[in-house]
């Protein structure tokens, strides 16, 4: 699904965003990307949505070299990727319903389709009662669920989440992770950047660790059962941390 081949991103200031990073993510995977601030997690995300261009190296998404996508085609490319941010990036002037509907309006869905799809996705994310609230009337966790609903309403094959729980308390974070896991189970590839080590250790999913723009750890642990239900998943997250299992 995603393949980074010796990707380097140098910023104008001379700092390295990424330094010959090489890794790949398979279709349907749930992958954590960890690392301290400035390690290059956000650079990976911004490269994937073509907000940035790599200085060197090749990025393949769904088998396609994304540097071949022209500026004019970028919007159409982005419609295949759901993105969730730490700061939610909701449209402040729109209700929950309209925020989610916007992602569908962009792609030219009719009002009828929108009326059918939006309530569904909001039910999935547990926001049925907040349809007509504005973002500033919601809690952080609710706002993040709106942004996940918006990212997923088009059923994109790839979902990127950049520090989705960075602004949330632990209990709410578990809810959000659970929601991302549920989305992953529908076949969507999910890539989550975070610095919440405790959460990552408990989730037992594949972990990519970045440090100063390099991939320093890539554990395709295989410690988890793929068919775990979301309930079991959440229970495990709430349980006290087990001894780290190192391969």
């Amino acid at each position: 699904m995603i393949e980074f081949r010796a990707v380097t991103k140098k910023y104008g200031t001379g700092a390295f965003g990424l330094d010959e990073a090489t890794f790949s993510v398979d279709r349907g995977d749930f992958v954590f990307m960890i690392g301290s601030t400035g390690s290059g997690k956000s650079t990976v995300m911004r490269l994937l949505i073509k907000e940035l261009e790599p200085t060197e190296g090749t990025i393949l998404v769904a088998g396609r070299d994304i540097s071949s996508i022209k500026r004019r085609q970028v919007p159409f490319y982005r419609r295949n990727i759901g993105v969730v941010f730490q700061d939610f990036k909701l449209l402040p002037n729109r209700t929950v319903y309209d925020n989610v509907a916007y992602a569908l309006q962009v792609t030219g869905h009719s009002r009828k389709e929108i009326r059918a799809k939006v309530p569904d996705i909001l039910r999935l994310t547990g926001l049925s009662t907040k349809l007509h609230n504005y973002p500033d009337q919601l809690s952080g966790g609710e706002q993040q669920r709106v942004s996940i609903a918006r990212a997923f309403v088009n059923h994109p094959p790839l979902l990127l989440a950049d520090e989705p729980t960075g602004n949330l308390d632990p209990e709410t974070s578990i809810d959000i992770m659970r929601l991302l896991y549920r989305i992953n189970r529908t076949g969507t590839t999910v890539l989550v950047a975070t610095h919440d080590h405790a959460m990552v250790d408990k989730m037992r999913r594949r972990v990519l660790e970045l440090s100063r723009g390099r991939v320093v750890r890539d554990e395709a642990t295989g410690l988890y059962t793929r068919d775990e239900s979301t309930r079991e998943f959440a229970q495990r997250l709430r349980s006290p941390a087990e001894a780290p299992q190192i391969l």
Binding site: F76, K89, P92, Y102, A103
Partner: peptide, 16 residues
């Protein structure tokens, strides 16, 4: 400008 940025991230074309 933030609003415009979000619209672009959701995949809106410039003219949209």
């Amino acid at each position: 400008r933030r609003e415009v940025e979000v619209m672009k991230l959701v995949g809106a074309t410039d003219w949209f």
